[in-house]
Nucleic acid binder design. Structure first.
Lengths: 348, 348
DNA sequence: TATTGGCACTCGACCTTGATGAGTGCTAAA
DNA sequence: TTTAGCACTCATCAAGGTCGAGTGCCAATA
């Protein structure tokens, strides 16, 4: 897949340009690269190589007489091949451990803290996607009669996460019946994952209805109604959006506005994010690689996290393509591993 | 309180300037005002009046040779005295009625839709503050044992709003005891407002403890623990922040960034908002009248809404001081009245 | 006495111009 | 293959100049 028609020297120069550009934000000229390079190559030679790199699409010039800046393809090459194995700075690690240990005990709190933490550490946008509801483990379920045929269903997950939904039932229920149905479901299915419970209920339903008593019928009915409603229950928690404005490459108001409109459309962002992320491990999506035009000059670093070995959600950050990839990858990787282990050891 | 040292003519001119400025966004000169005014006053005379108005602080000049723009004080005078009684355009009313009738049945949905609606209608920032938890009417309460001394308390309001919190209890409870305690509280207090329930529980607690059996003691204990946790449970739902960027007066990135940081600090904004709003009816706070420097060039239009005659939350919008106050006041007023009546007639 | 026409003045917006300097591509020599 | 040299390009900046909208003030006027 990767065309790699780059010899060692070109690679070295590409890397120099990218690293320098990431730090300074200024287009990098041949002189600068020459000074940085210990093997004494002259600016002129470097110019030749840079011209090649430009022709191959790894570098670009803002205008004729400026230095070079990396293209998305250039960043991609850098991220894939030239990154050192991610190594977290001790103080970053300490800060993360400290912040998370305090909040770890409660799932909801962790989901609040993590994007804040990522945003603070990198001065970029941090986010988490919560796990889908079908992976939640049943601890408790409860039906409350609201009004005629409207029933509120409250579901409690093993780790204390509460979710709820109003369902419309086909006949009126007395509260006492609802209570019994709830108790039945808990007794029968506590400890199972919602997705499995739904499958079992559907299977039960397919059996001869007459075989069940009223209690059972109610419970199955209500359970299926609740579980059928198609919402995956994932939320995108996003923090530090104002950080984006600190970067000079976004001086243009109009791009900025469209970007913030994208942030407001959380639903859409969730889709985008998990389309970018079937694989496991930290992934980097650079600029135009995602096909949302609003994200054209942004890069996102994302990693899934697991609960009990099962992929649960995504954590990551979002910033301009000109970003410190090494640090970002290290941070996101560490946090996703830490989160996985915290959630897997959660008390139940 | 209001100094009103302005004669009818000056008032007329002030109004002309403000209205014109709101529409065009350009400083308004004496010529323009002269042309707008049907009584044929010459630009020179108008200049004199405008100079007076400037001296009194109602108008200001961006620079020597520009027209005048309103100061916050000018807007204040306009809003207090020169506004026509709010009159909603039929199409606005129709759109609101249509959007809200669909969502009205469910409280949570209304809280999502209303800020979106306000934001869409005005291209500014719309918001709602949800009612404080102490005003919620008990429909159902439930305790779930999570782990050792951690108990999850789930509370359901009359209209189906769910809120929950984890409490630390001083001794371990069995789930059966928790269930009984929940049932007791529902049987005893359903239909009452949480604030009142708390008062009653505290009173009960003060009585001779020995007089109660274990069930009662548990229920009282848990109820008080839940109700004591100091969180008012209000949320600020805010929508359309990216609209702010459409207004040319915010070309400056830095102000903008600080503004968005303020938006992220929702907790702080809630405080600010209800400090501005003890009175009833639509209120307008203009620029520096609020003492948050980040809001210096913003105005907010806000109105409380009621549930059963009791003031419950706030609904309103936020935009640049250069805003169509007449329309904004009409919209917010109508929506708050509509919301009050919807929530008061809610089925229970 | 209040109003107004006239006039000098101010100042931002906009354009042109020229100097500066960083950086390039190309070519010819090492 | 590398490199020194050179002509060239182009963004950036400051200086200067014009334009026009709008002002403040004053003397004339109804």
């Amino acid at each position: 897949m990767h065309d790699k028609p780059i010899d060692a020297r070109a690679e070295e120069i590409l890397k120099k340009v990218i690293v320098n550009y990431i730090v300074t934000g200024e287009p990098v000229g041949s002189r600068t690269v020459a000074k940085l390079s210990r093997e004494g190559l002259s600016p002129a030679s470097i110019r030749n190589v840079m011209a090649d790199l430009e022709e191959m699409g790894f570098l670009a010039q803002p205008h004729t007489s400026a230095g070079r800046i990396p293209t998305d393809k250039g960043y991609r090459y850098y991220v894939d091949g030239l990154l050192k194995p991610p190594r977290l700075a001790p103080r970053d690690r300490a800060l993360i451990d400290e912040s998370l240990s305090r909040a770890a005990s409660e799932f909801g709190e962790a989901m609040e803290i993590i994007p804040k933490l990522l945003s603070r550490l990198t001065r970029q946008v941090g986010y988490v996607i919560t796990p889908p509801i079908r992976d939640a483990v049943l601890k408790h379920i409860e039906f409350v009669r609201l009004h005629e045929r409207r029933v509120l269903c409250v579901f409690v997950d093993r780790s204390g996460v509460v979710s709820h939904r109003i369902i419309e039932v086909e006949a009126e229920y007395r509260q006492a019946d609802l209570d019994r149905a709830g108790r039945y479901l808990v007794a029968e299915f506590a400890g199972l994952v919602l997705g499995d419970i739904r499958a079992r209920l559907v299977a039960l339903m397919a059996e001869e209805k007459a075989a069940f008593d009223a209690l059972l019928r109610n419970a199955i009915n209500l359970g299926v109604l609740y579980l059928n409603a198609e919402e995956d229950g994932r939320r995108l928690v996003i923090e530090g959006t104002s950080n984006i404005m600190k970067h000079p490459e976004f001086a243009d108001m109009d791009t900025m506005r469209r970007l913030f409109e994208t942030f407001e459309e959380k639903h859409h962002l969730v889709k985008l994010l998990d389309r970018c992320l079937e694989a496991s491990g930290v992934r980097v999506v650079i600029g135009s690689e995602s096909d949302d035009p609003a994200l054209k000059s942004l890069a996102l670093v994302a990693s899934p996290y697991q609960i009990d070995q099962r992929s649960a959600g995504i954590v990551g950050l979002l910033g301009p393509t000109r970003m410190e990839y090494e640090r970002a990858v290290a941070l996101v990787g560490y946090i996703s591993r830490l989160l996985s282990s915290l959630l897997t050891n959660t008390p139940h």
